[in-house]
Every structure is written in C-alpha cells, then in structure tokens.
Design a protein around this nucleic acid. Sequence first.
DNA 1: AAATCCGACAACCGCATCGGA
DNA 2: TTCCGATGCGGTTGTCGGATT
Length: 347
Amino acid sequence: MSQRRGAGGLGAANSAVIMSKQQQEAEEMELRRGPWTLEEDNLLMNYIACHGEGRWNLLARCSGLKRTGKSCRLRWLNYLKPDIKRGNLTPEEQLLILELHSKWGNRWSRIAQHLPGRTDNEIKNYWRTRVQKQARQLKVDANSTVFRDAVRCYWMPRLLEKMAAADQIPPPLHHAAGAMAGVSSSPFDGGSHLINHNNVSSSSYGHQIEPSPTTSSASGCSTAAAAMIQPVPCFSDQMRWDHHQIMQSSSGELDGGAGVFDSATMGSLGLDGLDLGPADYEYYPHSTLLDYLNSTCTGSAMMMSSSGGHGNGGYNYCAGGGMDGGDELYCQAAAAARKVGEWGGGT
DNA sequence: AAATCCGACAACCGCATCGGA
DNA sequence: TTCCGATGCGGTTGTCGGATT
C-alpha cells in the first residue's frame, strides 16, 4: 500500500513534474502511511480525550502523530470513535441501506446518518462488496432500473422476512411481512395489517419502538420493520408507493435489456449476499435473485407454478401471461396482491 | 502443505464545499 | 470579493485472512 501511496494518486504525467503539497509534507516530515499501530491509536485517542475532536491538522501537528490531519480524522471517525458499531450489518440495516440508496444514490454519508454507529465507509464497502457483486454476476448495472427493482422486489422482501422471522412470526405471517415490502393493495396501507399478530415487542434493531396506532397488532407492521422505519419517516410509505406505481403500470417502465439470464450465471449465484439460513429455502421458490429476474422475464411459466398453494412462496409476483417485451420484466404486482390476500386471510 | 483466489475492510487520494481572514 | 486552510465526501486500492484448489 505504502508503495503505491508513495507515488500518490497523481497521474503518471504529472507525478514526475508536479509534487503535491501532501507529498512535500510527507517527505519533509516523514509522514507515516498505511495501517495504524496501537501506539498511534492511543496517541490519537488520548489527544482527543484532552482536546476534543476537530482541528485535525492542528491535532496532527501537536499530538506527536506523524500522520496527516486527514488521516487522523478518518481513523477517528471510521474506527476509534466510541459509538462505532461493530459486527455485521443487521437485516434491518441492510434493508435501510438498500432503500436509502435507491433514494439517494451514492450519498454514503447521508445514508450513514440514518444508521447510528455505522460509518459511510462501512456502508460504501457493503454496497460495493455485496450489492454490486450481485449486479455484476447478473451482468446488469447496479444502478439500472432492472436491478433496482429486483432488489426491491426480491432482496428487500427477504430481508423483511428475516426481520419478521427474528420476531418469531409464523411462516404464513412472515410471508406477508415480506410481501409488505414488495406490494400493497394501496399505496399506504401496505398490507401491514397482515402481520405482527404475535404482538412482539422486541426489536433486533436495538431500540424499543412504542406501539402506535399504526404499528399495533391491529394494524401495524412487524416491530422490527417498525423499528427500521423510525429513523426515516416515509420509508415504508415510499416503498409501498413505489410498488403501487409498479402495480398501476400495466406497461411497466422497464425497457427490457435483461433477457433471460444464462444458466451458468444462475448456477453461480446461490443466495450470495442474502445470507439466508437453510430453513428459508422451504418458503422460497425463487432461491436466487437471478431466479427472480428470470421469472419476471419468462412470464407465465414459472410464475404460475406456484400460484396455487399456500405456503409455497410469496415471491412469485408475476401475474403471468399477456405480457410481452419489457412488460415481462415487471410482472409481480397482481399475483403478489393476491398472495397478500391469501396470507392475510383475504380481508 | 503450499499456492492461489477472493471477499472484506482500512486507508489513501482528489475534489468539493465551507468559513474565516 | 478573493484567497486559503480546514473539513467532508465519494472513488479507489492495498492488505489481510479465510476458503479453495
């Protein structure tokens, strides 16, 4: 790393002629680069404990650290700060990231503001290593409509499923929880009345959510979902609204381009990134994201294979039949609405 | 057991923005 | 108004450790 850093990020043409200010500083002061040592961490923490955050260049000069102010700031914000949350991202956090990214794009710091204890760097890495990997394997652009909708209609519901499962909602009900992310019979009721029959009060997100008239067992969503919703008002409404738009659109807004994905890709995908446990397979006729995409592309055949039974999966959103071209990519709405009706007792 | 591959993460870079002189 | 330093942001890459061959 340090070798590359030694050459800096300068273009080859410039590097021989122009020396950046930072490089000059580095050479003059023999600034350290690369991984931080324990001693450096201690120095930084002690200095901040005494003087507080901020004025990073001053800190760098006065603390005895042979680092740039930038480097000190980054080390503190991304690693040493006491409220940094460690460990894997929870399904709730993943879901939030997916949703917020669909809203804001690569505004990592903005997204991070809604995930307490998580840094923009961590979120960015998650996106690149998990989400973009899926897109690469599917041979679609991560920012494409196709992929975004696949994420929304396939990935998000499963994350919601996991959250619901964590709340110990029985399978038929947590199917409905999954469906909540994908569809609704109206933009704002989201089928949320279908779940949380267990009246669970705990939240794996780490903060307690007071039951409200809209999140109670009578009409609310799962508590985990509710917890997730808290930091971002309109989150669930936006999601449901998006799907309402999908449902309302008979022609679909996709312009195709996805086609049917090849079997090699399909075989390579598995459940990468989704982190589902073995028990989850029982309920998912679409075991992969690619599966989902293919099903939306190939129209009725796959979709209808599951249209008959309870408990055989809630993600065959395709209404099937009567679609052509790009429409086939976008067929989850009607069937899903019916599924929601089934799981929810057809109310 | 060794070599290679790959995913995850930490860290750096350049550029943009902000605020004070 | 302009300049300049400080800070923040997003993109990129090196390193490390575990998995696979």
